[in-house]
C-alpha cells in the first residue's frame, strides 16, 4: 500500500513536470519565419508554415518541414551548422561562421504601419 502511493506520487510528479513543458513541444505560431542572411545581408525569408527547401549560392541546403528549419547540407569544413539541428521557436538561431550564414527565427510582429 505504502509503496503504491509512492509510485503514483512519482507518476503524478513526472506528469506535472511533463505538463510544464507543453509550450515547448509545439513549434512557433504559424506566422513565424526564418530570416536567412549571408554576411549580414538578408538573402531570403522563409515562412515556417510552408514545407520547402532553399539552396544558397555557396551550395548550403536549407530545409523547412513541419514548422522547423535546418541545414541539410553544408560546404563548411567543421559542419557545426549541420549539427546545430532543427530550430523552430522565436529567437533560435543557426550560425555557420565559416560561410557567414545566419538563420534566425522571428515571429509575427505586434502591429503594422503603412
Amino acid at each position: 500500500m505504502n509503496r503504491n502511493v509512492r509510485i503514483w506520487d512519482l507518476v503524478l510528479i513526472i506528469a506535472l513536470v511533463a505538463l510544464c513543458t507543453v509550450p515547448l513541444w509545439f513549434p512557433s505560431s504559424e506566422g513565424a519565419y526564418a530570416t536567412v542572411s549571408v554576411d549580414g545581408a538578408i538573402v531570403t525569408r522563409l515562412p515556417l508554415s510552408e514545407d520547402t527547401s532553399f539552396r544558397l549560392e555557396d551550395g548550403t541546403l536549407l530545409v523547412v518541414r513541419d514548422g522547423t528549419i535546418w541545414v541539410e547540407e553544408s560546404q563548411c569544413p567543421d559542419g557545426l551548422c549541420h549539427e546545430m539541428g532543427r530550430i523552430s521557436r522565436e529567437g533560435q538561431t543557426i550560425l555557420c561562421l565559416p560561410n557567414r550564414i545566419s538563420i534566425v527565427i522571428s515571429g509575427e510582429v505586434d502591429a503594422y504601419v503603412g
Binding site: V109, D110, A111, Y112, V113, G114
Partner: peptide, 27 residues
C-alpha cells in the same frame, strides 16, 4: 498596449520587458 487606428500605431509599456515589434509595410 498596442493600438492601431487604421494604420496609425501607438505603443505603451512593455510585456516581459520586451519592446513591441512594428512591421513597416513594403509598398
Amino acid at each position: 498596449g498596442v493600438l492601431s487606428f487604421g494604420g496609425n500605431v501607438a505603443l505603451f509599456g512593455s510585456v516581459n520587458g520586451e519592446p513591441f515589434r512594428v512591421g513597416i509595410r513594403d509598398p
